[in-house]
Design a protein around this nucleic acid. Sequence first.
DNA 1: GTATCTGCAAAACATTTGCAATTCT
DNA 2: AGAATTGCAAATGTTTTGCAGATAC
Lengths: 145, 145
Amino acid sequence: MDVKELNDYLTKRGIRPSFHRIKILEYLFMNKTHPTADDIYKDLVNEIPTLSRTTIYNTLSLFVEKGIVSQLIIDEGETRYDLSEKPHAHFRCIKCGRIFDIDFDCALFNKKFIDGNKIIETQVNIIGICKDCLKKEEKKTSLTK
Amino acid sequence: MDVKELNDYLTKRGIRPSFHRIKILEYLFMNKTHPTADDIYKDLVNEIPTLSRTTIYNTLSLFVEKGIVSQLIIDEGETRYDLSEKPHAHFRCIKCGRIFDIDFDCALFNKKFIDGNKIIETQVNIIGICKDCLKKEEKKTSLTK
DNA sequence: GTATCTGCAAAACATTTGCAATTCT
DNA sequence: AGAATTGCAAATGTTTTGCAGATAC
């Protein structure tokens, strides 16, 4: 996505395309790693030295409000952000801290109601040990033996 | 559950049953409302005036470590605590803020692995508007008309 | 009497807010 | 000019930490 496309992407969704907003949106398109506000800040501040955290927070909450970004509450103490795409599950590894998408289609994703309660969004968070960290543990164990 | 039972409950799980620990465990058995650390503190401090938040945090993390309590990450900025029972989904109402259990059996609850990644725990969080708040909204709408 | 438990006060975080400065039209 | 956007600095709220005092075995 080039700047013109990002510009249109925002305009179409009723968001004025300022320089910062385009940069943050571009970051989200390029880094589908469920970054925290601080992750985004730390990376972008190299490019835009005058950038402030407040702008990151302002922009992200605007994006959430307009529905182009969704909040992922999976860690204690910090919120992660994700471009809104088709619903999927998230896996968080307790060893390496990585969070990645899992292509799992929960029966709830298509439901509008459950027990009379209206569903807006369903988040499926899987906590565990990822493939890569499992391999590392295996190696350690076999060396110890 | 009386004090003796709570005492045994802790002892069996390798936790020394201090007065505070029993009180906090009792609270969790009696209030299955997914309280925050602060909820527990505010209620118990009436009974135990010298109680400190630190003790609540210490005790809860001990309980989590020993597996008798699980952490529920569903709200921004605060962790909720739950007696570990059979896996179920949680519903959070964005109007009234209430969080309650939903008896939904996600296919992931019984899985040990997904895509080669080891599953420790799966949390299913449904965000929406609860039955009661929907009714209130209906009333308002019909009055406005 | 030594280890454990508790609690205060301070620190450490992420996030929000008030307001002033800047930018855009 | 007037509205929207940005950014600093302070405030807020939750949780953690260091350490001292109390309690238990």
